[in-house]
Design a protein around this nucleic acid. Structure first.
Length: 386
RNA sequence: GUGGGCGUAGCUCAGUUGGUUAGAGCACCAGGUUGUGGCCCUGGGGGUCGCCGGUUCAAGUCCGGUCGUCCACCCCA
């Protein structure tokens, strides 16, 4: 038997559509426009944006050479492609902000486990050309709206990584601290000192965390602007009555983030607790060859929130069946009329009244319309509410 | 990439120290005086025991490998 590839799933679940509809509705209500970018992109797009030091680029991409000799890969995340498109269409030369939402599959060659697949779906938004922290609040509010609409409980964590002014200075101090305690840190963290020192902050090992407690915090080293913006962020969320926690160790795995970062966490889905993540990336457009353009965005992991949506089983639609084959044309014609404004299922296999009612019940229909010999003569239905 | 658990019917799982035609519950189909579902009763269909190899008179059961799956590490949505 041929099976789907490891870590890839067929989606046979109406919840997926429900999430799609909800995210689309909310994004459109926020004034964002739809964008769909290619699933296949040049590999260097992700190397330059996500960052070569990240695990995603390092070891999780589906890379190959196509027949034209191009180094390509299946997209491991959504932001890079949208940014590429933004620049390619010269939107970076406009003064007006552009806001996009997308929904589609992403690919990462990882070892599958709960809430982690090799093909998974993300809904995401990207807002370009708006430097204000109030925009950060807008999009956090959008994510919160989506979760509220879907009835998903979450914890929001926020942090600020600082800008190109304060971040490098902080990094120096942190590296200095880490070098001092190098011998007590785990192997991974020792490696991180050179590669990506910020990542040591969210090391899961208790031994490292004990040392890192004393480490300098980014939030204590923000420049004046970043500090003010971080305070505005908190006030803005308070104003919208969105609860949050400040997590000074919240570091995101993609290299392009600056200033505001945030994550939505759920404790009901195992170790993969992040259901959405995002933040500001003011330098990314420029580093991919566009004009300097501030931007902020986030993405939601669809498979992860599918588990969190409770299924309501309500009856809906009409079941139509015939007890004799001669009645099939009649029910098909009637179904055509009824379907104009409601869900109508036609059973084309003739069977007993009892069997039809049973099937209609199992199918969670609200009403059953059955036609037998008598009904066909009169041109009417045997009707039953379920 | 590392570690651990698990692969028997569509689903959840039994299967005793290796021993005849491999079981249960749920689901499915058909009946229960020919046209009233959910409950109940009866009957029925359905499994190359993940795959390959080995040990043995004999393997679902033991051994090795492989693939898959789940959980965790790692990483992230």
């Amino acid at each position: 038997m041929i099976k789907a590839l490891r870590g890839m799933k067929d989606i046979i679940d109406d919840k997926f559509l429900k999430i799609f509809d909800t995210t689309r509705e909310v994004a459109q209500n926020y004034g964002f426009s739809y964008i769909e970018t290619p699933i296949l992109e040049e590999t260097r797009l992700f190397k330059r944006s996500v960052g070569e030091s990240s695990d995603i680029v390092n070891k999780e991409m589906y890379e190959f050479i196509d027949k034209g000799g191009n180094e390509v890969c299946l997209r491991p995340e959504g932001t890079a492609g949208v940014v590429r498109s933004y620049i390619e269409h010269k939107f970076d030369r406009l003064e007006t902000p552009k806001r996009f939402w997308y929904f589609g599959p992403m690919f990462r060659y990882e070892r599958p486990q709960k809430g982690r697949f090799r093909e998974f779906h993300q809904f995401g938004v990207e807002s370009f050309k708006e430097p204000s922290v109030w925009e950060d609040i807008n999009i956090i509010a959008m994510a919160a709206d989506i979760f509220d609409k879907l009835g998903i409980k979450y914890t929001l964590k926020i942090n600020s990584l600082g800008c190109s002014e304060c971040m490098p200075k902080y990094k120096e101090k942190l590296v200095e601290f880490l070098q001092k305690h190098k011998d007590s840190l785990c192997e991974d963290c020792q490696r991180r000192i050179k590669q990506n020192p910020i990542r040591t902050l969210d090391c899961k090992l208790n031994s490292c965390q004990a040392i890192l407690k004393e480490a300098p915090k980014i939030t204590d080293h923000l420049c004046k602007t970043c500090q003010e913006d971080f305070e505005k962020l908190q006030k803005g969320l308070d104003n919208l009555e969105i609860k949050y926690e400040i997590d000074k160790n919240l570091v995101r795995g993609l290299d392009y983030y600056t200033k505001t970062t945030f994550e939505f966490i759920s404790n009901e889905i195992g170790a993969q607790s992040a259901i959405a993540g995002g933040g500001r990336y003011d330098k990314l457009v420029e580093s991919l060859g566009g004009k300097p353009t501030p931007a902020v965005g986030f993405a939601i992991g669809i498979e992860r929130i599918m588990d969190l949506i409770k299924e309501e089983d309500k009856r809906e639609g009409i079941y139509i069946g015939a007890m004799i084959e001669e009645a099939i044309p009649f029910i098909q014609k009637e179904a055509k009329k009824l379907r104009k404004d409601q869900k109508v299922y036609v059973e084309v296999k003739p069977k007993s009244l009892k069997a039809h009612l049973k099937a209609a019940d199992k199918g969670k229909f609200k009403k059953a319309l059955i036609v037998g010999e008598d009904e066909l003569k009169k041109g009417e239905f045997f009707e039953k509410e379920l």
